[in-house]
């Protein structure tokens, strides 16, 4: 009982922290909380929210959104099936959605997200998260015009998972990357949910293709990562280089016939371990298994 109380207190303290609002550019702002980043686009037509964190965080997230706009949430886009990106859908819409049928929020993700959430084969089915999604897409890009701005949703196949989306706010010139890009920590390559190292690198290269840097490689297109600070193209380059270089090292070790344990012992990420949070062994193992599973 004491442990439970302690756990509740811990959870409570995490979300006692206020969610911060950071205007990015154009109509787009970044909300920063302990659970990661939320992207918000506001205007006369209502609000677009990319990723909703968790149900527990919803009051703080909504309070932050209300600093930007009083209009209802009309669109919710989930960039992956991760609980910290999707589990706030229902609670957030209860607080910030409209009760008018014509303004009912559309909650959209790639169809693989929904498939994974309802599948019993890949862990415990997350029925309530699945039920919070009322729209899916399978043809990329999925786009719509909202608040006078083209909103483009691109599927990034087999990257962090097989249901990842990145969202481009074309007039504001802001990309919301989800967990494909996490500048302060190693990326999670979720192999059981269809992720792969090559897909992740392809997705990062796609972001670089879409982003246009300002003068002397600074500013221009801004990138809101799934976790971590606001970034631009130059920051994505550093991250892409890190993933690519460690991938190349692991690939070379596989070619030499090294086992997973031998690769881990060689510490191919050791010059990045002081910079990126997370467990290097988990990252290296995911790369090893991802490359070993590839057909020649």
């Amino acid at each position: 009982m004491k442990l439970l109380t302690f756990a509740i207190l811990l959870c409570g303290s995490a979300w006692a922290q206020e969610v911060q609002v950071f205007p990015v550019q154009g109509n787009v702002s970044m909300l920063v909380g302990p659970g990661g980043n939320v992207t918000v686009q506001t205007g006369k037509e209502g609000i677009v929210v990319v990723d909703t964190q968790t149900a527990a965080a919803a009051p703080q997230v909504m309070a932050a959104i209300r600093k930007l706009s009083d209009t209802p949430i009309i669109w919710v886009i989930n960039t992956s099936l991760d609980a910290d990106h999707i589990s706030g859908n229902e609670a957030l819409l209860r607080l910030g959605g409209s009760t008018e049928a014509s303004l009912r929020a559309r909650v959209i993700a790639h169809e693989n997200v929904l498939n994974r959430l309802v599948a019993s084969g890949s862990g415990q089915a997350r029925v309530s998260d699945a039920a919070s999604i009322n729209d899916t897409y399978f043809k990329s890009p999925k786009d719509f015009l909202f608040n006078g701005e083209p909103v483009m949703i691109y599927h990034m196949p087999a990257a962090h998972t097989d249901g990842d989306s990145i969202v481009l706010f074309r007039r504001s010139d802001v990309i919301s990357s989800g967990d494909i890009f996490t500048p302060d920590r190693y990326p999670v390559i979720d192999l059981p949910n269809g992720g792969s190292v090559q897909g992740l690198i392809d997705a990062l290269n796609r972001i670089l293709e879409m982003a246009v840097a300002g003068k002397y490689q600074e500013g221009g297109t801004f990138v809101i990562p799934g976790h971590g600070r606001l970034c631009d193209e130059a920051d994505v380059v550093e991250f892409r280089d890190m993933v690519t270089i460690i991938r190349d090292r692991v690939q070379d070790m596989i070619k030499k016939g090294m086992t997973l344990d031998q690769v881990k012992a060689a510490k191919p990420s050791r010059d990045y371990d002081t910079q990126y949070r997370g467990t290097p062994d988990v990252f290296v193992e995911a790369i090893y298994k991802s490359l070993s599973a590839r057909k020649p």
Partner: peptide, 9 residues
Amino acid sequence: PPEYANHTW
């Protein structure tokens, strides 16, 4: 600026 602000050269 806060730690989550963008960085520059």
